[in-house]
């Protein structure tokens, strides 16, 4: 959709994909409703809803995409164009724990490289890869707003700061 006021008309044509749309529990549906209630236009809830789908299904899979298109009365391309713009939305499967090492300047000069190297060695994967058991994905990401407590990484949504290799070991070893 181009840069214009959002088209509030419902779609005349239901969206089709070769999969069945995702189904969620009534609690999740209620959570989705709470997000939708915040906005005059359903489309505004697209990012919060994508996070929910991701949480429930591991990543934004085709069934989740179809669910969102139907739920928000949008076309598949509307979901796709948004999903691929944002770096936190995963359209491909990802490890259970996503280790995101900040690589931007403040962390970089305080040892981010060493943390990445340590994780890489410990997990036996390179940056951008996932362990064969699907448990860890290792990424380098841009500034996470922890520059004063560098170096740091985020495991899923959790911040871990002032890292040292020993601390990294302790964090990764105690993950459930």
């Amino acid at each position: 959709m181009s840069q214009q006021l959002i088209n509030i008309q419902p779609l005349s044509q239901p969206v089709e994909l070769d999969v069945a749309p995702a189904v969620f529990s009534s609690e999740v549906e209620a959570e989705i409703d709470r997000h939708l209630a915040k906005y005059p236009v359903p489309r505004s809830a697209i990012l919060p809803l994508m996070f929910i789908v991701q949480r429930e299904r591991g990543y934004l899979d085709p069934a989740g995409v179809l669910y969102l298109a139907n739920r928000l009365a949008l076309r598949i391309t509307d979901i796709w164009e948004v999903a691929t713009f944002y770096s936190m939305i995963y359209t491909e499967p990802i490890g259970k724990y996503h280790i995101q090492v900040c690589k931007t300047l403040s962390c970089k000069i305080r040892g981010a490289g060493m943390i990445t190297a340590h994780c890489s060695k410990k997990l036996g994967i390179k940056v951008g890869e996932t362990t064969p058991d699907g448990r860890f994905t290792l990424s380098e990401v841009e500034c996470l707003g922890s520059c004063g407590t560098a170096p740091m990484f985020q495991v899923n949504f959790d911040y871990h700061e002032n890292l040292t290799p020993a601390k990294v070991d302790q964090i990764l070893d105690t993950l459930p």
Binding site: R75, T77, D78, W80, E81, F85
Partner: peptide
């Protein structure tokens, strides 16, 4: 805008 289809879009960043 012409076709009302929105079938092709820009993905990625």
């Amino acid at each position: 805008e012409w076709m009302g289809e929105d079938a092709i879009e820009a993905g990625g960043r």
